[in-house]
């Protein structure tokens, strides 16, 4: 299984490498992220310490997080289904789980590579006089990695649901927004569980209220990682189901 995962991941990375879309997405990400960083610095009005974590929880962050992973993952399984290459893939010694995890790791690595150069932005800002709490910044990066991984898993799951990349991207958005806005449940319901769900399981809440105060809460990490694993499991099931129906 691991051999297969590595092999599929390598193949997908090669496909990313030769695709122009990869570079356009990366360019857009860097440009938009830099623009957001500029707005963030302006917003700070000199008090950088107080709003450090804000960069990882405001609308700009979520805007990129909502769109980038589905764009990266939308064709991973859908194209295999659409072009029929899945038949070739599945009639060689392999496993559904190996295929899914291989694709997931490739997408994950790609999204990490997008974030990798961004600490430079903070360094430049610091070099020109701003001061940050680097602990909070690293907590923010940890959160970003967890959120992007989860969204990649969601993207792969929705990609396995249909043979249309566009549809899989839209479906992924639905799932992502649902998780993000769980916190509003509190505003609509007075039931005790609504409070708990909003507090503990809303991505927005996890990012802004805990991680970015520098509190790395193990239960939140476990929650995000488990959710990622769950979506990968569902993706495997979806792939299996397509063959068995």
């Amino acid at each position: 299984m691991i051999r297969n995962t590595v092999l599929i991941a390598k193949k997908e990375l090669l496909s990313y490498f030769v695709s122009p879309v990869t570079y356009v997405v990366a360019g857009l990400f860097f440009l938009t992220n830099a623009l957001f960083f500029y707005l963030f610095i302006k917003e700070a009005r000199g008090d950088f310490e107080a709003i450090t974590g804000y960069f990882f929880s405001w609308l700009g962050f979520w805007f990129l997080a909502l769109f980038i992973p589905p764009i990266i993952t939308m064709r991973l399984v859908a194209d295999e289904l659409r072009l029929g290459t899945i038949e070739m893939l599945m009639t060689a010694p392999s496993s559904d789980l190996g295929v899914i995890t291989g694709k997931f790791f490739a997408a994950q690595l790609y999204s990490f590579l997008l974030w990798a150069p961004t600490p430079i932005l903070f360094m430049i800002a610091q070099w020109s006089g701003a001061t940050f709490d680097w602990g909070i910044i690293w907590a923010g990066y940890l959160g970003a990695i967890l959120v992007y991984s989860l969204f990649c898993a969601i993207g792969i799951f929705t990609s396995a649901l249909s043979d249309s990349p566009l549809l899989s991207m839209l479906l992924a958005l639905v799932f992502e927004l649902a998780l993000l806005f769980l916190m509003f449940l509190r505003s609509y319901s007075s039931a005790p569980y609504a409070e708990v769900i909003s507090e503990r399981y809303s991505l927005w809440h996890i990012m802004s209220e805990t991680l970015l105060r520098g509190i790395v809460n193990t239960s939140h990490i476990v929650f995000l990682v488990s959710l990622t694993a769950l979506f990968l499991f569902l993706a495997t099931r979806a792939l299996e189901f397509r063959r068995w129906k």
Partner: peptide
């Protein structure tokens, strides 16, 4: 229909 990865 020989499905292949056309980008490779």
């Amino acid at each position: 229909n020989v499905p292949l990865y056309s980008d490779l």
